[in-house]
Design a protein around this nucleic acid. Sequence first.
DNA 1: TCAGTTCGTGAAACCGATTTCAGACCAGGC
DNA 2: GCCTGGTCTGAAATCGGTTTCACGAACTGA
Lengths: 348, 348
Amino acid sequence: MTTINDVARAAGVSPATVSRVFNGGRVTPERAERVRRAAARLGFAPNRVAQSLRKQRGSVIGLVIPDIENPFFTSLARGVEDAAQRTNLSVVLCNTDEDVDKERRYLDVAVAEQMAGVIVAAASRTRTDLSALAARGMPAVAVDRRPRGALVDAVLVDNRHGGEAATEHLLERGYRRIACITGPQGASTSEERLAGYLDVLREAPGHGEERARAYTRYADFRVEGGRSAMAALLAMDEPPDAVFVANNLMTVGALQVLAEAGRTPPGFGVLTFGDVPWAPLVRPSLTTVELPSYELGRAAADLLLERVAGTSKPLQTVVLRTSLRVRDSTAGPADPVLTPPLGAPAPA
Amino acid sequence: MTTINDVARAAGVSPATVSRVFNGGRVTPERAERVRRAAARLGFAPNRVAQSLRKQRGSVIGLVIPDIENPFFTSLARGVEDAAQRTNLSVVLCNTDEDVDKERRYLDVAVAEQMAGVIVAAASRTRTDLSALAARGMPAVAVDRRPRGALVDAVLVDNRHGGEAATEHLLERGYRRIACITGPQGASTSEERLAGYLDVLREAPGHGEERARAYTRYADFRVEGGRSAMAALLAMDEPPDAVFVANNLMTVGALQVLAEAGRTPPGFGVLTFGDVPWAPLVRPSLTTVELPSYELGRAAADLLLERVAGTSKPLQTVVLRTSLRVRDSTAGPADPVLTPPLGAPAPA
DNA sequence: TCAGTTCGTGAAACCGATTTCAGACCAGGC
DNA sequence: GCCTGGTCTGAAATCGGTTTCACGAACTGA
């Protein structure tokens, strides 16, 4: 390892001068050039560990996400990375597996490694604790989910609006018994998406909140949870004819169960929240509430970079909109006799 | 930040003693207890940056992968993480996007951050350069792909065997014109899988190497590459009736094109290398050469941890076997009159 | 010409741990 | 009583940078 001292000796200057050359201090051009040449010749690259120790701040930012296998988060990660790329900070990914303990360990590592900052998609709204970071003065940005009481910047999705748009769409297409499979109770994302669903059905003639709640199932945002929730819905006395599923993984589970039961879209309406990757493979194509996952990461990184640079702006919350992408899985119910879709010709 | 000095003062001992308490030096039990209590009371956690600087070795290991959106690598990452979990090392993920420059930057970061070691799934066999790591004495393990000439431990997959098994299976099921979509030329994985395919067809009556090569297309391991390769194959004068696709993403592209052309499995045989996630959604289910992705990560981490611990074993290469998982997409050709599947009754 | 700036520079302190080294202390053997 | 050997301890050096501080030279304006 060639150090700053080696370079200094080779260039006939003091280490302080070398440091100044690389950090924008004032150095006469002639000396600076000598230093640069010596550095290049020796293949000098500053030891980031020593830098971090002295500056009391590292040059990596941590991105803490709950599920690396979910394309939503990988796309988000890509957004973060692209934003960081333009600075000299590197991004490292920490996967918590929705496990609060694992998450806490990673946050401890972030502190111990003196990371420049952290972007956190919290594993739990109530149990994720960002206060240790704040106490150490480490900038943090919450993304997708805002942990309760955390005094941090946040970049969120307008989940409620997404839930409303989804439900309205299913109503318009003539589905009569619209179910909802949402995530765990207590997760802000699931609660909000559910709230959007309830908002719409509460006011819809023939539906109402009570009925909507009867058609609601809580699951765990995972494939298996989607399976069992869908199975439970199909086992009802009066099973639903459409379902709004509050995340992409659960949709996969739901689709499996539907296929096994022979109830395929669009006869049985399926609308999913969040892009299902490989969606092009699914027949019929899936109507989706699209999440701006990449932009979410991008925006979070921009916010964090500002804080790292030392801005003293008041805390911000940015909310990004979802958009409904209509495809074939919600074309209309199998049995239009009972419930003609809007604008459909009357049955013969 | 409470430091080792704060703890020392609070416990009435020297910093050296505090360090010894936490690193297994000899300290009288009574003092050790005093130190531990003081540390707990002050919420002391050693500053990893300072540790790294002094020890000349950090406590994170870098996992450098080419495509974080590919479930193969996320599963591999999980294997690495689980193995590291049992030590006090943390894993950070670096996504290179198959981009050699980005990869080089990450490797530089690994050196500058004095990481304990790196596990690399190389972006390029010829252009990925691990020598800088070796020069700095940083342990490295190549996984899935071995960069040319790198003197490192490696954990690989028996791609050739997988390619053979796949091709044999398609032959046995009665397909007559078996194509292969493989990855980029020069990538060891694509070359080996192709080699397995050629091995089998070279000896197969009615096939032979020349014909097999005519049915071979090189693509880029991505969805779009799979699309265009499949389209090119279908446009041939005598299009294939089955395809062996050398990775999961390209299979997605190929399936799209096949669906659009109305040529669906198993009438058109499709066999994919590597688990397609969401595979349960695809009808018919896909016959697959399964890759031991998790175990790959696990084994690579174990190897790396040994090196980090300072073993002086000679370099190792571990090769893990693939296994053929037969499902419905290779049930037999659409037109068994021409080519009765083995054991099928003669057509009436 | 002289006081007052400004600029460039290197010596030295500093970040927070680990580790070496030398000394204090004690027990045991002669 | 003295020497030997072992154990425990703290002072100080060290890792590789950044930053403060003081100093000398050059420049400015009167």
